[in-house]
Design a protein around this nucleic acid. Structure first.
Lengths: 163, 163
DNA sequence: ATTCTTGCAAACGGTTTGCACATAC
DNA sequence: GTATGTGCAAACCGTTTGCAAGAAT
């Protein structure tokens, strides 16, 4: 694959992108063990140049401005692949589906990535002081701390299966 | 509406439920400004007696054992209503859809309930020490702190519209 | 040449919605 | 009697999947 188009984006992208050219982006992809395609480059650049935490749909709309032929399915697959290899972060559904809890006292949750069980954590243990100097403009109604990992049962299963 | 069935559930529910009878449940619903129906009572009791953070579907399956005729739609509507009035908690999608972020450095997020914008928070400010004594069996891979509230822009809009 | 990726369209699954009927108050 | 909740089924919408054609290595 050859590189012809420029890496320069619009608006806020420009500030962030400055100093990072196509070659850098390509290297980044390769460093993560990814094959390089125009689509991936465009998707990564779009995401990299945004602070909006865009959804797959939004990334798709952005990328389409440069690659009219790209498909939404590719964007989904690509973002998920990026996420898998640790190239990008994902803010989103912490559980596959909504889960409810009659315990309304202050507490947080541990979610098992394997069996999807949710374990309550006494809030007392953390009480993260996120009164956050500098973010005062934001009116915080509630905060949620979620730990992702493996519950004792699933951890044991991994060890036994020879992790 | 009259109360005939017993409040006793199975397994772990029993321990939790003990000391809370139908009248208590009814009062709880009323206290939250809710009309009382068999369905709501059953849904609330089911949730109250569980530590599994069940999904709507699971609640539905449970409740159906007592009320064969209940519909899944009702469970959805009811749980959401419970959540609205603060009777129950919801662990689930913190954003409507998955959102991505090329910033992989340690940081957390503020999500605006109104405009759905997401603002990064420097991790340095909180660093919640959730090494959590007593939960050692759980192997934590990553933790996510999410604040819900209103961003400066939306907060201002509320004030102007006469909150 | 082989393997991985793309595009398209259909399928999926959780959730929401509309409406007629039933129930709570 | 009036407002609210229920049941059912269809619609929604974000996401995933299968597969044939295309591109990367």
């Amino acid at each position: 694959m050859s590189v012809e188009h420029t890496a320069v984006h619009k608006t806020r992208g420009k500030e962030i992108m400055e100093g990072k050219n196509d070659k850098d982006f390509i290297s980044t992809l390769r460093d993560h063990g990814l094959q390089v395609t125009y689509q991936r480059l465009a998707i990564y650049q779009t995401l990299y140049s945004s602070r909006e935490h865009p959804s797959a749909e939004v990334v798709y709309q952005q990328v389409k401005k440069r690659f009219a032929m790209i498909s939404l399915g590719t964007v989904y697959k690509t973002l998920e692949k990026f996420y898998d290899v640790g190239l990008i972060e994902k803010v989103g559904p912490i559980t596959e589906v909504a889960r409810y809890d009659a315990n309304t006292g202050p507490h947080h949750h541990m979610v098992c990535l394997q069996c999807h069980s949710i374990i309550d954590i006494d809030c007392s243990v953390d009480e993260p002081k996120i009164s956050v100097a500098g973010y005062d403009g934001f009116h915080v109604l509630r905060q949620q701390v979620v730990l992702h990992g493996y519950c004792p049962k699933c951890k044991a299963a991994f060890i036994n299966s020879g992790s």
